[in-house]
Write a protein that binds this DNA or RNA. Structure first.
Length: 546
RNA sequence: GAUCGCGUAGCUCAGUCGGUAGAGCAACCGCCUUUUAAGCGGUAGGUCCUGGGUUCGAGUCCCAGCGCGAUCACCA
């Protein structure tokens, strides 16, 4: 429930059309030939047909050829059974067994535990007849030592010549070096993948943000912290899923290609189905489909998946983003708010740092109403149209005298959001009904809707509603919204008649909510840019195959 | 979309007042059996983002473009 069919679309469209014009101009402009090929291989492009390898790539290819021709090895590897993750091999280290070996000649039976491991070489130190290397996999790092005395000649040659970035398999007893480093003393050593690309700097990894996002596969192994963030993301999504299932929600998948893009006010992406010869929209929200499922009889449903919005990119916005939406029949705004509060409490497990903020999820979240926040910031009642116009006019809005006063309230509310303490998770409740066309108005005051938003660290985390299930009011709301939109939006916005038919069949009263999963991950991992929690954030095309 | 900042070797970064393009890591050759960003000796590696301009001379100054980042706007 990501948003609404809001009249605000009018000015968003002005904004969007500028960006679209900018984009088409951009696409028609020839770009300098800095291609993906260069990023990947370090080769430089001398003209459109002739590619010259960099010395670094040439050296790696030459090494590959020598291994294949002189040592007869297949550098591309094969299936290997019985491998253990590096962290697990490290944990198998046995102090007593290592002590038994130290100093004295090894006994007939080596008491040290053995392990076979695989990993990418991230450090390599060759010292003549001995070499050390550090391997990395998703579980961590582990040192391997290869001695000329312990390995077959060809294996030792390989071990002493592997490059940063190669993927190897090694096996042997898990011991310790003189300096106390846990280490596998390899008696088996094989290369299972030759890396031909020039590696990044081995201590800093990639620091240039552009390269980190464009070449995430390098960033993941080379930059400290990247893998941890994405493993944590995976855990968080898994915890959320488990939490929802424990609360008797069932997971569903609804269309991402929709004939009518509804459930939010965003501008959609358009695609085309050839056989049916129809345009389809990538969904901007799953809301209207999930509500159909309540009509069909499901009591509690949720969906975690991508939405696509054809809008700007920022530190907090990626055009495709992951959202969880959930609907609970016979719940309401309050029931889904308290469910969410306990979800956040569980995910955070206390206080989590985000930038300079220390955010406490244990205490009850703050609450304020939209109207109070508005009045505190602007000194007038949001229902007082004349006063609102006066404030808007004093803030320099050109359309202060003609625009719908509720749209002025919405525009002015941005400033009010800044009054929310970013270090305290805060509910803003009782949104204006005219800005909330999918939620139920209060019985005693139809200008106020049963709708709340959650704010944390200055970010909007999600929307929470008592759902509107009166088909006549819903139709009227949709119709009002459509009446106010401009030509540009009218092209992709229309009444979802099938959804209204579903409401005629009858949807039980319900609470519903949507939360931005990427933003939850940002909060839980302390990343202040969404690009650091999305594996492959959208980047401007940079020529070549990127 | 606006404003500000950045773009130099494969990577991480220096580059003074406009005066011959620098270092570390990585690479190549040699030495080295307990290293920890190993060490020592040697070698090679550049479209200084692109295109104009100013100048005797531009990595450096000016203009335009491209890309990235930050802030703002819009949104979750």
């Amino acid at each position: 429930m990501s948003g609404l069919l809001r009249p605000r679309i009018q000015f968003r469209c002005l904004h969007q059309s500028r960006s679209l014009r900018g984009l088409s101009h951009h696409l028609s402009t020839p770009r300098p030939p800095r291609t993906g090929w260069e990023y990947r291989t370090g080769m430089s492009v001398t003209d459109s047909t002739d590619r010259t390898e960099s010395d670094l790539v040439a050296a790696r290819r030459a090494k590959l050829a020598r291994w294949r021709d002189d040592l007869g090895i297949d550098p591309w590897g094969c299936r290997v059974d019985g491998l253990v993750p590096l962290a697990e091999a490290r944990s198998m280290f046995d102090e007593a067994a290592a002590d038994a070996i130290d100093g004295d000649p090894p006994p007939d039976t080596d008491p040290r535990p053995r392990a076979a491991v695989a990993g990418r070489v991230i450090q390599h130190r060759a010292m003549g007849k001995l070499c050390f290397m550090v391997l990395r996999d998703e579980s961590g790092d582990l040192q391997i030592s290869c001695s000329k005395a312990e390995l077959e000649t060809s294996s030792f040659k390989l071990a002493s010549k592997v490059d940063y970035g190669d993927i190897i398999v090694a096996a042997g007893p898990i011991g310790r070096t003189k300096r106390g480093e846990i280490c596998i003393w390899a008696d088996r050593f094989e290369v299972h993948c030759k890396s031909l690309a020039p590696p990044p700097e081995k201590f800093h990894g990639l620091t240039d943000a552009e390269q980190r996002y464009r070449r995430r596969y390098v960033d993941m192994y080379a930059t400290p912290g990247t893998m941890e963030t994405f493993l944590r993301r995976s855990q968080i999504v898994s915890e959320i899923r488990r939490f929802m299932e424990e609360h008797d929600f069932i997971e569903v998948e609804t269309p991402m290609m929709q004939p009518v893009a509804g459930g939010a006010a965003a501008r959609p992406f358009v695609t085309h189905h050839n056989a049916l010869d129809i345009d389809l929209y990538l969904r901007i929200a799953p809301e209207l489909y999930l509500k159909r499922l309540l009509v069909g009889g499901m009591r509690r449903v949720f969906e975690i998946n991508r939405n696509f919005r054809n809008e700007g990119i920022s530190r907090r916005h990626n055009p495709e983003f992951t959202m969880m939406e959930a609907y609970e029949a016979f719940g309401d705004c309050e029931s889904v708010m308290s469910l969410t509060e306990s979800l956040f409490r569980k995910l955070a497990g206390g206080t989590v740092a985000f930038g300079d903020l220390m955010i406490d999820y244990e205490a009850a979240f703050e609450r304020t109403t939209y109207g109070d926040l508005f009045e505190k910031t602007h000194g007038c009642d949001m229902r007082d149209a004349d006063a609102v116009r006066k404030v808007a006019s004093s803030k320099g809005f050109d359309d202060a005298s003609t625009k719908d006063p509720w749209l002025l309230v919405e525009a002015l509310f941005d400033e009010a959001e800044e009054a929310i303490d970013p270090s305290r998770p805060t509910w803003v409740t009782d949104f204006p009904a005219p800005l909330s066309p999918l939620s139920r108005p209060h019985a005693d005051d139809p200008s106020i809707a049963w709708r709340a938003e959650l704010f944390i660290a200055g970010m909007e985390l999600g929307n929470f509603y008592t759902e509107l299930n009166d088909p006549d009011i819903q139709r009227a709301r949709f119709t009002e919204q459509l009446a106010g939109i401009n030509d540009e939006d009218a092209a992709f916005r229309s009444l979802d008649e099938d959804f209204l038919d579903a409401l005629l069949v009858g949807m039980p009263p319900a609470g519903g909510f949507g939360i931005g999963i990427d933003r939850v991950v940002m909060l839980m991992t302390g990343n202040t840019s969404i690009r650091d929690v999305v594996l492959f954030p959208l980047m401007r095309s940079d020529g070549g195959s990127e």
